[in-house]
Computed example of a mutant assay.
Amino acid sequence: MRLSAAINSFKSSNLISWKTTGKLQQTLAGCIELSGKTLHSGKVSKVKIWPGFAGEGRYFEFHSNLIPASIDFVRESLLCTTLCKDGYKIRTVEHLLSALEAKGIDNCRIQIQSLDSEDTEVEVPIFDGSANAWVEAIEQVGRKEALDRCGNNVEKLAPYLSEPFYVSRNDSFMVAFPASKVHISCGIDFPKVPAIGCQWFSSAALDDSYEKHIACSRTFCIYEEVEHMCSMGLIKGGSLDNAIVCSAIRGWLNPPLRFPDEPCRHKVLDLIGDLSLFARSGSRGIPMARVISFKGF
């Protein structure tokens, strides 16, 4: 079971109730525009993020097609999170959505385009493999209260968990417990890659620690798996500039790491982005719970 299936199980579990956070929905105070090379296709794409109306949430616009950043539109894909609607695909959305969720941007229109106008799928730029570029851009333009199309503000809701939730596949699992605050823990285990090994990282994901300890953590890969991934048409745009690469024999090929447990911190970054897909109508996606994930959910 992949993460999308786990979140769908969570969504349909009848253990969730939506309650006010005591805050109002937010959006960007200005427009963000960034472009760069993508990880898997290797193409260049351009992203413009516009302020959005309260109650409309986060959604992508690609060739005039609107694709909500929702679990309802997730399709299974290797090594990235992909949204799909009416034959159009947006790939590798997790870093951008992680930054938007953590920074409290509840409503926005994410206009994305490839340099090839004939493409029916497009990918979010990878930059240095972290969420830093998005966080810095959000900080630069700022945040403001979102208003609906009638000029009214809207309360921000959050999903609350009423009972523990558990889902697993083999030795991978995700478990969530009711809590008064959001807390996320991720574990990874690479016994054949000693430089990584078994790691755990925990964070109160929506506080200031996101920028300092999570957003700057880069995606990683195993050097011995690169040729196989390339043969599958993946990581065409991958390089030592947008990922940290570890060899089972030689260790890290492009040190230094930003943190000793940077790979595990990046998994928390990804998980925040994926959980953001649980959001609806400008609500928060991450549930009010202690969430624990192990080995790649």
Rank of each mutant, 00 (worst) to 15 (best):
Y210K: 03
Y210N: 04
E211M: 08
H213N: 14
H213V: 00
H213F: 09
C216H: 12
C216Q: 10
S217K: 04
S217I: 00
S217E: 02
S217V: 01
Y223C: 05
E227L: 13
H228G: 08
M229T: 05
S231H: 09
M232I: 03
M232C: 15
I235M: 12
I235Q: 07
K236A: 13
S239F: 05
S239D: 05
L240T: 05
N242A: 05
N242R: 05
N242M: 03
A243S: 10
I244N: 08
I244V: 14
C246W: 05
C246N: 04
C246V: 13
S247C: 12
A248Q: 14
I249H: 14
R250V: 04
R250Y: 14
R250C: 12
P255I: 10
R258D: 09
R258W: 10
D261V: 09
K267I: 05
K267G: 00
V268A: 01
V268C: 04
L269H: 02
L269C: 01
L271C: 13
L271T: 15
I272W: 10
G273L: 03
G273C: 04
D274R: 06
D274F: 06
L275Q: 09
S276F: 08
L277F: 07
F278V: 09
F278G: 07
R280M: 02
S281H: 03
S281P: 00
S281N: 07
G282F: 00
S283D: 11
S283Q: 01
G285H: 08
G285L: 05
I286P: 00
I286Y: 07
P287F: 00
P287T: 01
P287G: 04
M288Q: 12
A289V: 02
A289E: 01
R290N: 14
V291T: 15
V291W: 10
I292C: 11
I292A: 09
I292K: 10
F294M: 12
F294V: 13
F294A: 14
F294N: 10
K295N: 13
